[in-house]
């Protein structure tokens, strides 16, 4: 039952979340914006379009969207980001280190694919994204480790659903969400709508993709956004959102919290200015510092 809820949310929530973010952002900018479900229409349209592939591209370029989507699906299946019970709960499949390195593998493939096209933008975007990844990874790893320390297990499917002290939850949850903003290339670090060569990071790596490839990549991005937000919500508010005897209630409140976070992100993207590329390290340093704090608070436990 609980697993069915997890799968339903896994299919529905990512697309809904990207719709909500886009609509809020449009409203914040003072324009009515496209219809609420426009991102879904776009996706359907892209699946039906033809595509152009660079003549230097090899099989890596074609494999990248599939690798990315399948890794994101595996992570989304085993991590309890919806508040419902995930697949294979408590079997150690959702090991913290494994999840972090699965995500790193997906990034490795997307960087290779960006270089594979032979376009100058691909290389530029890949080098920027690699630099950013080096900065973000410690923060994500340490903030998740704080939760693991506090709950006494490395298995995220158990750790995210066990009660954690408020201070640890606050510090590691905020650290994780700030790092997630950078990891998902959202606003203060990267503007997902820009296509200006000086500023784009993630967009530069997917510039050569079109048609079905692009649709797959956008699905992956939506899924990853939902998973990262969901994990952040579970760390930050998990204690309040969970009701032990009713899976539907806890899943629904988690989904509502994730959508609220999406609205918040839309507001943030409406008012914030993209950081200067040289200032990004200090943004990430704040997240890392919070993560280190939370890990020690979890370890000392006073």
């Amino acid at each position: 039952m609980s697993l069915a809820i997890h799968i339903v949310l896994l299919i529905a929530l990512p697309l809904l979340l990207s719709c909500v973010i886009r609509k809020t952002k449009a409203l914040m900018q003072g324009r009515p914006g496209p219809p609420l479900f426009q991102p879904i229409f776009d996706l359907v349209k892209r699946f039906r379009k033809g595509e152009t592939v660079s003549s230097t591209a090899s099989w890596i370029f074609r494999a990248n969207p599939l690798v990315g989507l399948s890794i994101a699906l595996v992570v989304a299946m085993v991590v309890p980001w919806t508040g419902a019970e995930p697949l294979a709960r408590g079997s150690g499949t959702a090991d913290l280190i494994l999840i972090v390195y699965l995500l790193a593998m997906a990034r490795f493939f997307s960087l290779l694919a960006a270089l594979d096209t032979g376009s100058a933008f691909g290389g530029l975007g890949a080098s920027r994204e690699a630099a950013l990844a080096v900065l973000i990874e410690p923060s994500i790893l340490v903030s998740l480790s704080a939760v693991a320390l506090a709950s006494g297990t490395m298995d995220l499917s158990v750790a995210l659903q066990s009660p954690v002290r408020g201070t640890v939850a606050l510090l590691s949850g905020s650290a994780f969400l700030l790092a997630a903003l950078a990891e998902l290339s959202r606003m203060p670090v990267d503007d997902p709508t820009t296509h200006l060569e000086l500023t784009m990071i993630h967009e530069a790596t997917i510039l050569e993709n079109s048609g079905r490839n692009l649709a797959l990549i956008e699905t992956t991005v939506a899924l990853r956004t939902a998973v990262f937000f969901g994990v952040g919500v579970q760390i930050l508010l998990g204690k309040a959102l969970r009701s032990p005897d009713n899976a539907i209630v806890s899943a629904a409140s988690s989904a509502a919290a994730i959508l609220m976070l999406g609205c918040l992100l839309g507001v943030l993207e409406g008012i914030a200015v993209k950081l200067n590329w040289r200032r990004v390290p200090s943004f990430v340093a704040f997240s890392t510092a919070l993560a280190v704090m939370s890990a020690f608070v979890a370890a000392v436990g006073a």
Binding site: P281, V292, F296
Partner: peptide, 17 residues
């Protein structure tokens, strides 16, 4: 800025210990 924040985190850790 980055170093200052990490120094701050170090201070918090030491004080907490």
């Amino acid at each position: 800025p980055g170093l200052a924040m990490l120094a701050g985190a170090l201070i918090v850790v030491l004080c907490y210990f």
